[in-house]
């Protein structure tokens, strides 16, 4: 058994993840929560329609309060993104952006949904012709070529570092990097050419990507551009574990009323399971997931 084995690991610290943490930790499960509060869609929101919160409070305040509640039951919080997940021998391994590994008996996915597209000229037309949304999937097609990665967070940064093993030149285009110090140091010591304080204005190419025009007026000659906004999402982290998605959109993780996915020990709660985008739904699903995951972890510990 690994030294620090958790009962319940939660990716995402929005209302779904927090409620799951509160319920699991209050039942004496050993709980760890990963994620950055500002990535929750609640962070910048004002709450008007959530039961029993008559006085308007900000999303930020709510997230802070939820964390304090969960911490009061000894849940551990780590403000880092998860960049890889594995499921072996009935245990989940989680790899953080700083290169640490955590192991847990159960995993609750509650990282919400985020937009993946850049929404710039040339992007849609050149998908699969140099525009990619998945470094892990497509890096191999860019051996010896020049590529750019765009994004401000862990997915773009780790993606750029990964691409160094394949591509000849790797640019990282970002407004301002929001990553851990450890990852920042790793980036600084790498051959990635970081272009800061700007963004992509247009992707140019006749049949394939040829150039990327930046907002600062600069033009990069590249064969490919990887759009990696925010943290890694469901398609990267959950699909690799074998989780089923809804066939209609391939965007949401399928769960039953216990918030169980098709993979034993893997649960999902909140926006990641589909609409409506409401705190009340996220909290409700988080509650169920937290209780169910704790039960499962306790049974597994005894077996």
């Amino acid at each position: 058994m690994p030294k620090d084995l958790y009962d319940v690991a939660i990716i995402g610290c929005g209302p779904g993840g927090l409620q799951a943490a509160i319920h699991s930790a209050s039942k004496k499960a050993k709980v760890i929560v990963f994620g950055k509060p500002r990535n929750s869609s609640l962070y910048k929101a004002h709450i008007a329609n959530f039961c029993c919160s008559e006085k308007l409070i900000s999303g930020k305040e709510m997230l802070e309060a939820g964390r304090k509640q969960a911490e009061s039951f000894d849940a551990v919080f780590l403000e880092e993104d998860i960049i890889e997940t594995k499921n072996e021998n009935k245990l989940f391994s989680l790899f953080t952006e700083s290169g640490e590994t955590f192991t847990s008996r159960t995993l609750i996915l509650s990282m919400g949904v985020a937009r993946k597209k850049l929404r710039v000229k040339g992007e849609n037309r050149l998908v699969g012709r140099g525009v990619s949304y998945c470094v892990d999937c497509d890096a191999n097609f860019y051996r010896g070529l020049d590529v750019a990665v765009v994004g401000n967070e862990s997915a773009a940064t780790t993606g750029a570092i990964t691409l160094l093993s394949y591509a000849r030149t790797v640019y990282l285009i970002c407004r301002k990097l929001m990553i851990t110090d450890t990852l920042y140091k790793q980036l600084r010591n790498s051959q990635v050419k970081v272009i800061q304080d700007t963004w992509v204005k247009e992707i140019i190419g006749t049949n394939d990507v040829e150039e990327v025009l930046l907002k600062n007026g600069e033009t990069l000659k590249v064969n490919g551009i990887f759009v990696e906004l925010g943290a890694k999402g469901a398609l990267e982290l959950a699909a690799n574990l074998g989780a089923m998605f809804d066939a209609e959109t391939i965007s949401f993780i399928e769960t039953n009323r216990k918030q169980e996915t098709n993979i034993p020990g893997l649960y999902a709660a909140g926006d990641i399971t589909g609409q409506p985008w409401q705190i009340a739904k996220a909290v409700g699903e988080g509650c169920v997931a937290g209780i169910e995951a704790t039960e499962y972890a306790k049974k597994l510990a005894k077996s």
Binding site: L235, L237, I250
Partner: peptide, 17 residues
């Protein structure tokens, strides 16, 4: 497809259907 590709795994059941 490829075995390491998450989105490929997600779409596999749709192909089957």
């Amino acid at each position: 497809w490829a075995p390491w590709c998450g989105p490929c795994k997600a779409i596999a059941p749709v192909m089957k259907e």
